[in-house]
């Protein structure tokens, strides 16, 4: 059993990922093993590590030029996300409970204790595949992606 397979099973045992997610990850590992080395190398070169997380909200293009509209363009360096996650692990237990409570109030049942520095690279890698593209009823385009 490889080190990666062990890690996936540990994450499953700690209930950090679901059975479906573990199954999918193990399948990916298996397919990587069966692929020729050249293909893997080419894929690694092609898929460079993302440097920024972008969040953009663009107004409806049908709006008249010069009309005042809402617009958002946020670029967060991945290194800042890494450092932020590291800082999260240093939150004192009392404050952590307050953070968890505030998240629960917003409908996010998430324990910040689950954010561990050793999982940062996995999270960043997962973010590189993330792409959210939403068009609101008012015609605004919301995009979240890594670049």
């Amino acid at each position: 059993m490889s080190e990666n397979q062990k890690r996936i099973l540990e994450m499953l045992a700690n209930k950090r990922i679901s059975v479906d997610e573990a199954y999918r990850l193990l399948n990916v590992l298996e397919s990587e093993k069966s692929e020729p080395e050249g293909t893997l190398k080419a894929e690694t070169v092609a898929k460079a590590k993302p440097k920024y997380l972008r969040v953009t909200v663009l107004p409806d293009p049908a709006n008249e030029p010069g009309q005042k509209v809402d617009r958002v363009n946020v670029r967060v360096p991945m290194s800042l996300i890494r450092a932020g996650i590291k800082l999260t692990s240093l939150i004192p237990p009392e404050a952590r409970e307050k953070v968890n409570g505030a998240l629960r109030e917003k409908g996010l049942d998430f324990d910040v204790r689950n954010l561990k520095p050793e999982d940062i690279e996995g999270l960043i890698e997962a973010l590189s595949d993330l792409e959210v593209d939403v068009v609101s009823a008012q015609g605004e385009k919301v995009k979240v992606y890594a670049e």
Binding site: K51, K68, D70, V74, R75, V76, P77, S79, R82, L87
Partner: peptide
């Protein structure tokens, strides 16, 4: 803990290079 927080805060500050926030509403 205090030493670790100081180090992590410095790291956060150094990682801010490249951060860009551009928000515009009607007002």
């Amino acid at each position: 803990w205090a030493l670790l927080v100081l180090r992590a805060a410095f790291e956060v500050f150094c990682s801010m290079r490249g951060l860009q926030v551009d928000i515009c509403d009607r007002h």
